[in-house]
Structure formats: C-alpha cells, structure tokens
Design a protein around this nucleic acid. Structure first.
Lengths: 219, 219
DNA sequence: TGTTGACCGGACAAACCGGTACGTTTAATG
DNA sequence: CATTAAACGTACCGGTTTGTCCGGTCAACA
C-alpha cells in the first residue's frame, strides 16, 4: 500500500540507472547500430553492470526498444511545442521547417537510430505504437497549407504528405550523411556556418515549392 | 606475356566468383549492416564457399570495402551516362533530378549501404579514394545552373553544392526510409504509383527552387 | 599427358558475446 | 533490529561467428 511511495523514494534508484543505461545505449546504438553495439561495452561505460541491462530491460533488444521509444518521445516534444496559428501561412511554414531542421540538428543520435532502424527494415519499431505524433505533425502542416491556399499566399493542391516527406528528407539527410558528404566534398558539415547556410537553403526550398507564384494556375 | 590472356580465359573463373560474392554480399550488408551480416550466410547464398571470401578479400571488412567500392562505381556510371548539353537548362535540370531519383530507386541496396557507412561514421569509406564522381556530378549541375542563369530561365546566385545536397536528400531519403515511413503513414511506399508520384514531386521541388520567378521568366 | 599453380570446400579452432546463476547490498517497514 | 524485496555485482556458460588448415580439383601449358 505504501508501495508507490517506497518505489519513488529509493536512493538506490532504478529509474536513474535506467536513464543512464538508456543515455549511454543511445550513443552506442547510434554509432554502431543494433548489431554492432556491444552490451558489455554499454555496461562498461556506465557506473553499473551488464546484469542491470537484463534486469531492467530483459534483453539487448529490449534496451534498444527503450532507446527507440525515448528517442521518438524527444522528437515529439521538440516538434510539437510550437503554435503556428498566430503566424501567416508563409511564416508558419518557414517556422515549421526551421524548427524541424533544428530538432534534427540538436538530436543527431536520434537521426542515426532511425537510420539503423531502416537498415533493419523497421523490425523493432513495429512493436512500438507511440508515434501518432507524426500524424500530428502532418495535421499541423495540413492546416498551414489549407490556410495558405485559402488566402492565396500558398499554392493550392499541394499534398501535405508529399511536403512532409520533403521537409523530412531535407532535414534528415544533412544530419544523417555528414560523414560521407564531409569526406566526398571535404568540408566540415558540422560547423555552425555550414549548418546555418544549409538551414536557410532548406527553408528556401520548401517555401519555393509551396509559395504561390505570380501567374498561379488553377485546374 | 600470355599472362593476361590466361587470366581472362579461365573457366574456373575467379572474377566471376568475386562478382557473385560481391553481389550477394551487397544484398546482405544492405539488409543487415556490416556488423549484422554473417559471413557464413553470405557464403551459403552463393555457389562457392566461405573460404573464398577470405581467399579473395582477406576478411569480412575487405569484402565490405569491395562492396562499397563497387556500389559507388555503379552510382557513378548510372549518374554520369547522360548528356545534358542538348537540352534547355530547365529540361536538363528536370532530367538530371529525375535520373538521380531513378538511380536511387533502382539501387536501393546501395542507398542502404551508404546509410550503414554513415552509421559507422564512414570508417571504411576513408580507405577508398575512388569517388571523384561526386565532384563530377557537381560540375554537371554547375554547368546547367550557369547556363540557366545566363539565359534567364534559372535563378542566379544558386549554390551548386546546396542544390546538389537538396537533390541528393530528396532522392536518397525516400528510398532510405521506406520502412519507417511505411509504418508511420501506413502506405506502401514501394508501389509504382507512389514511386511515380514522389518522383514528380521531387522534380517539381527542385525546379521550384531553381526556376526564375515569374518576373524574369521568358519562355 | 604430366606438371603446375590457381581455385575450391568442409572440418576445425579460438575468440567473442549475449544471457544467466547465484550471492550481496541497500533501504523501507514493522 | 529483523525482515523483506528490490537493486545490484561477479563469475561463468554455451552458442555463435570469424578466420584458418589441409587436402582435393580443375584448367592451362609444355
């Protein structure tokens, strides 16, 4: 009965242990993928032991799922915390795209983990159903596009899903592929100036696609 | 002196064996990543044995590097085999973007392998220096942009690198992330119709970004 | 046709790694 | 303080996986 309190007040804190494990594991999985990461290595980098991974998460896959879940949560809160209704459709769209870019830039490990998931054909993600936030993001975008189409500032007939894919692609790709790009073109894609330039370009690209043209055609 | 001929004419053909090994390994690495793929599994799927992997490539990493190298080569020939100088800048740009999309769509394993490389921070790619083709692709793009800027059909002041990144992002992302997207939005991203729709959208996006705005357009 | 050397395959070895058994510590509670 | 259950650590097991060994085969060429 005092159970709940008991659990909460522990000094020997399970949730702290879990959090540390997840944090380190996020790094490790992002760097090496699910198969490449080593349970022992993850444990060694924490203050606790390998056994705790099995105690708290049951298996390597369990830990990975926990990492995935938290990663998506972080994305969600970062993406969803903005009110676009106060702005004009054009400004809202710019803000949305910029914010999306920033989220990706801020959480490169998450981007990496999503990559890892795709290499593994999204096996693990199927057992998690906590990402209605994507649909939510799509709704946000749809509202902006509708608003812009109505007042003539944005092109009409745009497919929200396509635009979402475009935004996602532009933001994701730069963060995801810094290494190969950096090597091929020999520039430091991480640097603040390149980051800023890329962000600007991404926003400009989406705006170009969505903004109404002078001689707007209607079918 | 008859050495070259000898090597060529073998029935017991080493290059055929190598090719088969690389082909299967490409699949396997693309599906599971470097760490996730199993040497034994690769060997089992070929007509030859595991020993040949070590005979021809020295190690698992050696095989992976060979796969990477050939993957980039395939991209290069597929990308470079077109003459854009006969077309107007606008048409050339559309063709270039479309062709880039098609290359990615046709070789999803290569896309996957580049993903895998980025997860592993491009460790292996550093030991390969055979991709000036990217710079070549950049030159092709630069020429088109310059031409378009000169005759007023394309915006002036565009950065070829940024546009290249954009094209790459749009083409790469759709192919790379079919699994997570497919799951989140519940549609079959592989299907011909979705593929076609996406291709059209990608071309339209790049054109929107690069085309001269209504005021300056001629045609 | 016999020799040579590149090519091949299956069995084997050693390391590696996920997972577990079992014992210990900590903190809340009576 | 004794009890209890959660939290934790250590040592180890057993399957898996990379890489090797050794004997055999086939094609080219003299």
């Amino acid at each position: 009965m005092a159970q709940a309190i008991t659990k909460e007040r522990r000094k020997r804190d399970s949730s702290a242990t879990r959090a540390e494990l997840i944090a380190i594991a996020t790094d490790e999985f992002a760097e090496k993928g699910l198969a490449g990461a080593r349970v022992e290595e993850i444990a060694a980098r924490t203050a606790t032991s390998k056994h705790m991974i099995y105690y708290h998460f049951g298996s390597k896959d369990g830990l990975y799922r926990a990492v995935l879940e938290q990663a998506y949560d972080e994305f969600r809160v970062a993406e969803g915390s903005f009110d676009y209704d106060d702005l004009t459709a054009l400004d809202a769209l710019s803000a949305l795209v910029g914010a999306t870019f920033d989220v990706h830039a801020r959480c490169p490990q998450i981007v990496r983990i999503i990559m890892a998931e795709n290499i593994n054909c999204g096996q693990q993600i199927r057992s998690i159903d906590s990402f209605q936030q994507r649909e939510l993001a799509l709704d946000t975008l749809r509202r902006i596009l509708d608003r812009g189409a109505a007042d003539g500032t944005l092109r009409s007939g745009l497919d929200p899903l396509q635009i979402h894919l475009t935004v996602s692609a532009l933001c994701f790709h730069y963060i995801a592929n810094v290494h190969t790009f950096g090597h091929v073109f020999e520039f430091d894609a991480h640097s603040a100036e390149h980051m800023k330039a890329r962000r600007k370009e991404v926003v400009a690209t989406v705006i170009s696609r969505c903004a109404a043209t002078a001689g707007e055609e209607k079918r």
